[in-house]
Design a protein around this nucleic acid. Structure first.
Length: 467
RNA sequence: GUCUCCUUCGUCUAGAGGCCUAGGACACAGCCCUUUCACGGCUGCAACACGGGUUCGACUCCCGUAGGAGACGCCA
């Protein structure tokens, strides 16, 4: 494939949607796979709804995900060019001024709805300016063919054909002189040399309109690939009511970019039975043949699974770096080292970076409260037994996990009890709940003094007044 | 309503006419491992929407039906 040029063209009228992220990723992969160019184009022609915050968010998310682009454009900077094309089409008789007022069109639309027929602009102004044209600011509409059919050979959807009778003379330039999306995309894609348009299949029907513009301008039509949308668990287009939909939300929820990308890739695309696919492998394998045509539902369980996999497989020091923004307190060097020492077993238990950060703080600093289940190990028997175990080991030189465990086993046997009784009581003291990495590992890492302090705190806990 | 698209376990999917007694992954259940929780290992549960063709043979090809989704803006 020579000189592939693709683009990701989000509009900053809302926060960057997770579905858009997948579109961006597929574009990026296709460019990388073919050694082509990837363009980021912010489509902000709707000035009323576009915001700088959302634009910034797009850049931030792309950076977070590592989706680098070769060029970046802000569409509104190109408005003059868009206008120029519209004007030229009018001069060539391929587009025309329409003086119909919005009220007039609203009325016709309402009428069509009442009659139960589908509304299409009636082309009133197509063959010349009507007598009573008093609208000061007309729009420019394209002259769509009245007969025949338009077809595309989509890389994902296959051959799709639509009767031109379905098309109406849509607006290219608004009455305030600004271009519509339909015009802007086509002009920009052409000017930027875009060879492949990869986007959500909600744009499929727009394609037939956009092709009319290409034809009117006499330009080459790009290759299209319309990928299915991501649905929510109820099978409809993923939206806010389904939960988190913006890319930053997932970042804040503690998902790793590589995990999110891996998950999104497998949603609708496959490579045999492969589930964990690195970005490098994805670049090598990606193609549109293996993109399914049917929409996929977003499944948080699977994302969680993939995320925990990537967390487990990230090196400890690297993981610590990623974790820093999730810590809810300052960490001094001493405690940082404790966390690093415990990272191997901590990361095995985490689903998100949020979980991991929380568990790490607990590990290094100890509990600030105890869960209800700790009451069970807060009776005289457990406290005495565990207290004696701590006394039993206090004089020992080897304060390491293995030795502590061995001594606990011996101690339990001597006192005719089970290891689990001591371990769980210790666990309550050390982290305030019944699930954690090995208590003996924690003891080794935080040291004898901290262990005794945590145990005393636990002993002094007034567990029974909590209820 | 009109147009377009879709339909394999609950979910993501493998499947290019015989390899299918339909495979994998997530989720779920059970067992093993085990100081808890996880991890890991094993086992189980669970699907070709329906009806017609074509064919010696159909999850795979064709046609219908049903269901679902998307698009129908001076939004993108």
């Amino acid at each position: 494939m020579e000189n592939v040029v693709v683009r990701f063209a989000p509009s900053p009228t809302g926060v960057l949607h997770i579905g858009s992220v997948r579109t961006a990723f597929f574009n990026w992969l296709y460019a990388k796979h073919n050694g082509g160019k990837f363009i980021l184009r912010v489509e902000d022609t709707d000035k009323m709804r576009s915001t700088d915050e959302n634009t910034q968010l797009i850049f931030d998310v792309m950076k977070w995900l590592g989706l680098s682009y070769d060029e970046v454009f802000i569409q509104s900077a190109r408005i003059e060019r868009h206008k120029e094309v519209a004007q030229k089409l009018v001069e060539e008789g391929k587009a025309y001024y329409c003086y119909c007022t919005q009220e007039e069109l609203e009325q016709k639309k309402a009428q069509a709805l009442e009659d139960g027929v589908s509304y299409k602009y009636d082309r009133k102004c197509r063959d010349g300016v009507p007598e009573n044209a008093d609208s000061a600011d007309p729009v420019i509409r394209i002259k769509c063919p009245l007969e025949g059919a338009t077809s595309v050979n989509d890389l994902v959807q296959g051959e799709v054909q639509v009767d031109n009778g379905q098309l109406d003379d849509f607006v290219l330039l608004r009455s305030d002189g600004t271009p519509t999306y339909m015009l802007s995309v086509v002009v920009d894609d052409h000017d930027m040399g875009v060879t492949h348009v990869v986007r959500g299949d909600d744009h499929l029907t727009n394609t037939f309109r956009q092709i009319q513009i290409y034809r009117a301008c006499g330009w080459d039509i790009p290759v299209y690939a319309h990928i299915p949308l991501i649905y929510g668990d109820d099978g409809t287009k993923l939206s806010k009511r389904h939960g988190a939909v913006s890319a930053v939300e997932y970042q804040n929820l503690g998902y790793l970019p590589e995990a999110l990308l891996n998950y999104l890739l497998r949603l609708g695309w496959s490579h045999g039975n492969d589930e964990i696919i690195s970005v490098e492998q994805a670049i090598e394998w990606f193609n549109f043949d293996n993109v399914g045509k049917s929409p996929a539902r977003f499944d948080l369980n699977k994302l969680n699974n993939v995320n925990s996999h990537y967390i487990r497989n990230t090196a400890n020091d690297e993981l610590y770096l990623r974790l820093e923004s999730f810590f809810e307190r300052e960490i001094d060097d001493e405690h940082k080292n404790i966390i690093l020492a415990g990272m191997r077993s901590l990361k095995e238990r985490a689903v998100t970076l949020v979980d991991l950060a929380e568990a790490a703080i607990l590990y290094a600093y100890g509990p600030t409260q105890y869960t209800e289940e700790c009451i069970k190990y807060h009776d005289e028997e457990h406290l005495t037994l565990t207290g004696e175990y701590l006394k039993y080991i206090s004089g020992n030189e080897n304060y390491d996990e293995e030795a502590l465990l061995m001594m606990a086993r011996t101690f339990a046997k001597e006192h005719d009890t089970k290891l689990v009784e001591i371990a769980q009581c210790l666990r309550c003291a050390l982290v305030g709940k019944l699930a954690s990495p090995s208590v003996f590992e924690i003891m080794q890492n935080i040291g004898c003094t901290a262990v005794e302090k945590r145990f005393n705190d636990y002993r002094n806990w007034d567990g029974y007044s909590r209820n």
